[in-house]
């Protein structure tokens, strides 16, 4: 009985397992997806304000270009790029590609490098425009 217990494979339990990178990436897809819904809510608020008139537009544009606004926009862009790049990986998996464990481990880095590069490129462009 006790021997059978020892040999029985354990199912992963979140509280005792150190999450491998692939698992962290997986839950991050969900977290960014839900986070992006908040982003969509903000876009909706911006559009409705802009449709309401010039003073409302000036108010939300003021919020968007303030420092807290920029921080929110930065988080939004980084989350969106991560979700997008990881989404592309999801679609490769869906057509049966890159399914091996070694492939998944490698594509973790493709996704992270892609999201990082796009975020940096975006904000370098933003700073470039602000500077001149």
């Amino acid at each position: 009985m006790s021997e059978a217990k020892i040999q029985r494979p354990l199912s992963p339990h979140l509280q005792v397992y150190k999450l491998p990178l692939t698992a962290l990436m997986s839950i991050s897809h969900r977290i960014t997806g839900v986070g992006l819904i908040t982003g969509t809510l903000l876009v909706t608020a911006f559009l409705v304000a802009a449709a309401s008139g010039e003073s409302q537009y000036d108010y939300v544009m003021g919020l968007a270009t303030s420092l807290p606004g920029k921080i929110v926009l930065f988080l939004w862009s980084a989350g969106l790029y991560f979700h997008m790049c990881n989404g592309v990986r999801h679609m490769f998996w869906d057509i049966g590609k890159n399914f091996k464990k070694t492939d998944a481990n490698r594509s973790n880095y493709y996704v992270l490098i892609g999201a990082f590069t796009l975020t940096v490129l975006t904000w370098v462009t933003v700073c470039g425009r602000l500077a001149g």
């Binding site: 010039e54 544009m61 997008m84 989404g87 679609m91 425009r129």
Partner: peptide, 28 residues
């Protein structure tokens, strides 16, 4: 929708960068 959003989202971000601090007249 995921596939369609890839070019559209890139276009949106590109557009937002161009519209940073745009006046009401410029935005409309």
């Amino acid at each position: 929708t995921a596939l369609a959003q890839i070019p559209l989202v890139l276009w949106l971000i590109y557009s937002i960068i161009g519209l940073q601090g745009a006046s009401y007249a410029e935005f409309t």
